[in-house]
Design a protein around this nucleic acid. Structure first.
Lengths: 348, 348
DNA sequence: TTGTAAGCGTTATCAT
DNA sequence: ATGATAACGCTTACAA
């Protein structure tokens, strides 16, 4: 009882004309008589004809769909990016096919391979935390497959990229803590494989140095899986607080790390900001309702999704090869909510 | 410079054999000599052959992809549902194509039509707030197109459905407020078109009645667009607090309404729970970190996505028509965090 | 203006 | 065991 869809053939048969005529009439070709055109259009309407996009894809060698690979959908930042992606894709008549790497290199490779085997016209990808070897992406890119990297990027592949100014985000967050008198600022961050880690930590370090503070490697805690399992964050935070010189502030470099950090501190009975101040990357609505309202670095996620998609469609639809690849750098916003940061006495 | 993909033809040519032989070898047909098979396999490997899923789709009249229509991706609840959907789809080798109605009936119709025109094998949908007329879905369903409804469903279509026990969620949330002595409990809810609205409000009303309280229609505020624009929530909350008999508690029936409600109260300078207690549906991680930690009704969103997808794939892959459609009802969890609710003196 | 036929990549049927 | 051919639904030279 599968439903048989109406094809161009059915219309042709019904009208006693050829399929090519029908096709032309539907595509509004000028080389067709107005009468026939109307006839076909009416018939198509009556039979509720819908062109088969798959047949079209086969013919045109394009699917009008783009693939998206992110580590996780259920994440404020990425779901907002996807929102941006979908908004542009919808406008341009493209489908969005989503798949999650779940921070696994193997899954990323599989996802990529699957999507790229011509079921999508191009790819938007934010690398998984495990991804160190980029041969899968390189191979694809070398074949001329349109790819745009966003958020977690790599310099090993020369294509369009969209990121926020992670250095700036890290710098400003740290600087804000310093300005409030903090002297022992720790950073809770992701895998060292990730570009965002380097950039945000670099900003952190630079802010310390620019303000005459020393970088203390013990204050830098990496969560390899970015907190996919909560215990990872818990361990990292615990490590920070079991050293002699406990930090007086923490800068968390991602949505998940920020939430996890707050949760862990609460469990340890540490008050924010009385015992320790916290600033983190966060795209959650709730940051301002948290106890106390949190100072956060907010990323223009929606815009990132839109930009990345625009660039990708540009790649897909451009006839001639792109001369130079664009690296678009958006600006993150430090949303200051004073109560979340303890004013320390600045003695010097 | 479009990359030319390797086809079965290329292998055939390279080996000087026919495409049918290649096809058979790749599909591991038994009616083929081991030598040829090995030859083909090696060659395919060498040329890095990938079957073209589009050609396959055309042939098999199935795309191995499913469509998902939700009002919004950047929403804790829905992104968690999508996570569940993706997890099952991935296991079963299906692609997930997402599109957002953005609470617009027109977009929902377009999305549906587009997805259903044979580019997906089935559809998972949670209705938009504007959706009152169901003819688009009915037509599709009547044609035998596999559809599973989740969360915001309708009884007008006889197919598999997955929801949480919204009545129970509404009942327990309200009951919890009553148990703490609240006498003037308002409800902030969605459009009257939505099933979730009816069910949750019904639970609310029933809890009131069961506890000897009267239902006050002035305490029931609907946000037609579910808070897509924040002002809507602000207006609704403001209405609650400009009547003579101001509520002493609010039950918010969705993620977005809960957040928006808290935000509005804060803007109005109303303290939770000193001035008004709040309980809401919420799937945010941050509920427990809010000030004060919020008592919420949490929905098993991931499970909902998984269940809906399983049912859909069952529909898609079943040869014979389903005898009876299943309505799966998951259980929401009332996560009580006492500090968010003011203990009122129970006088009677 | 309209029809015929080839082709997109694959598999299934029928020969050989 | 292998090859030729048709078919999936559509577009587009090329003919008529």
């Amino acid at each position: 009882m599968k439903f048989e869809a109406v094809t161009i053939k059915d219309i042709a048969r019904a009208l006693g004309i050829s399929t090519s005529t029908v096709s032309r009439a539907l595509r509004d070709s000028h080389e067709i008589s107005p009468e026939t055109k109307q006839l076909v259009l009416d018939c198509a309407e009556k039979l509720n004809y819908r062109p088969n996009p798959i047949a079209l894809s086969l013919k045109e060698r394009r699917s009008r769909s783009i693939g998206v690979v992110v580590c996780e959908i259920a994440n404020n930042f990425f779901s907002q990016v996807i929102n941006g992606i979908e908004s542009i894709a919808y406008d341009k008549g493209y489908n969005v096919i989503i798949s999650q790497s779940r921070e696994s290199y193997d899954r990323e490779v599989i996802d990529l391979q699957y999507l790229a085997s011509r079921s999508v016209d191009g790819l938007l990808i934010s690398l998984s935390t495990e991804t160190n070897d980029l041969s899968h992406l390189k191979a694809l890119h070398a074949k001329g497959f349109p790819i745009v990297l966003f958020d977690r990027i790599t310099d090993e592949i020369n294509t369009h990229k969209v990121i926020v100014d992670n250095f700036k985000g890290g710098y400003e967050a740290t600087e804000h803590l310093i300005k409030n008198g903090h002297k022992r600022i720790a950073v809770l961050t992701n895998s060292e494989f990730l570009s965002i880690t380097h950039e945000r930590v670099a900003g952190y370090k630079e802010a310390l140095i620019a303000n005459g503070q020393k970088v203390n490697e013990n204050y830098i805690q990496h969560c390899f899986y970015g907190g996919m399992m909560f215990e990872e964050i818990e361990d990292a935070v615990n490590k920070l607080f079991t050293q002699r010189n406990k930090p007086d502030a923490i800068f968390a470099t991602s949505d998940k790390l920020t939430t996890g950090c707050l949760k862990t501190l609460k469990r340890r009975g540490l008050k924010v900001p009385d015992d320790v101040s916290v600033v983190g990357f966060s795209n959650s609505d709730l940051a301002e309702l948290i106890d106390p309202p949190l100072t956060v670095v907010r990323q223009p996620a929606f815009e990132m999704g839109k930009d990345a998609t625009e660039l990708l469609l540009q790649l897909i639809e451009s006839k001639r090869p792109i001369k130079e690849f664009e690296k678009r750098i958006l600006t993150p916003e430090l949303q200051i909510r004073e109560s979340s940061i303890k004013k320390m006495v600045i003695a010097d």
